[in-house]
């Protein structure tokens, strides 16, 4: 069975490969859920504290917790995709995969599927703990949550593919980029504050980043109880271009790696 020319069977085979890895190692599962939970607890207490001191946070309770959880959607989507790619390099398995019938686009699709699985494993427990600990449910965002989630995930996948492409080009010496790159975008995305507080030049950068629209949209829901479809639509359209760019960049870097004969040496 094929969808858009991609073999569902081969995508499922790769997803199965990552699932085997995940289910065979409980520390990996704990690691996936650990940081989102720690962040949620820490920011939950910060929010409880500031809500007691500030009327704004008392009326818009959840603005920090919502932001930290949505930020984690972006970060987990990116890092989960990159880790799937790294698994092949760490295990020196890329050569076997690239000579198999698996197409690079199917490889990308499998990494996206597993990024989704890993992100949900990491975040869903934290969202339920937030309800239990702080009485805050991110699910109160309603259908907007689905739009926020997928928009942020799309951007995370675009960044994850770009970072993986850089690894293909420069080798595992650039591995730390995978962990650090998204955090470098955080100040521009207005995760915890409105974009208007940024200097003019930073606002220009923000305007080019889809997450900035998503976090504005989240604040509109929590503060003004307004669903800003215009912000979501803008982010979605931009994300389509970012994801297409991420895929094109990854495929280009894969081709460059083949030209340079790096696929067999990249894990060494």
């Amino acid at each position: 069975m094929t969808v858009f020319g991609l073999s569902v069977e081969r995508i499922a085979a790769m997803a199965l490969r990552y699932w085997y890895l995940l289910k065979g190692s409980w520390p990996r599962i704990v690691d996936i859920a650990y940081w989102p939970t720690v962040q949620m607890v820490m920011w939950g207490f910060i929010q409880t504290f500031v809500a007691e001191k500030s009327g704004f946070f008392a009326t818009a309770f959840g603005i920090l917790l919502g932001a930290v959880m949505l930020w984690d959607v972006l970060f987990r989507s990116q890092i989960s995709l990159s880790i799937s790619f790294f698994e092949e390099i760490w295990s020196r398995n890329l050569g076997h995969l690239m000579v198999s019938p698996l197409r690079p686009t199917e490889f990308i699709a499998a990494m996206i599927v597993m990024s989704l699985v890993r992100t949900l494993i990491g975040l869903v427990p934290a969202t339920f703990l937030a309800i239990w600990f702080f009485g805050y449910s991110i699910y109160d965002l309603g259908l907007g949550l689905v739009a926020f989630f997928f928009s942020l995930a799309l951007f995370g996948w675009a960044i994850g593919l770009a970072v993986s492409g850089v690894i293909l080009r420069f080798g595992m010496g650039a591995e730390n980029l995978a962990w650090a790159f998204t955090f470098g975008l955080a100040p521009f995305c207005g995760v915890y504050y409105p974009i208007e507080v940024l200097p003019a030049w930073m606002e220009v950068v923000s305007a080019a980043l889809p997450p900035a629209y998503i976090f504005e949209g989240m604040r509109a829901v929590l503060i003004e109880q307004t669903f800003r479809a215009d912000l979501i639509a803008t982010a979605l359209i931009m994300n389509v271009f970012y994801l297409a760019g991420g895929i094109a960049f990854f495929l280009w870097m894969l081709r460059r790696a083949k030209e340079r004969g790096m696929l067999l040496q990249i894990g060494e």
């Binding site: 490969r17 890895l21 190692s25 698994e87 020196r92 050569g95």
Partner: peptide, 11 residues
């Protein structure tokens, strides 16, 4: 060229 070390041979 290796295969994934953490997976069993069957997997």
């Amino acid at each position: 060229v290796d295969m994934p070390k953490r997976l069993t041979v069957r997997e």
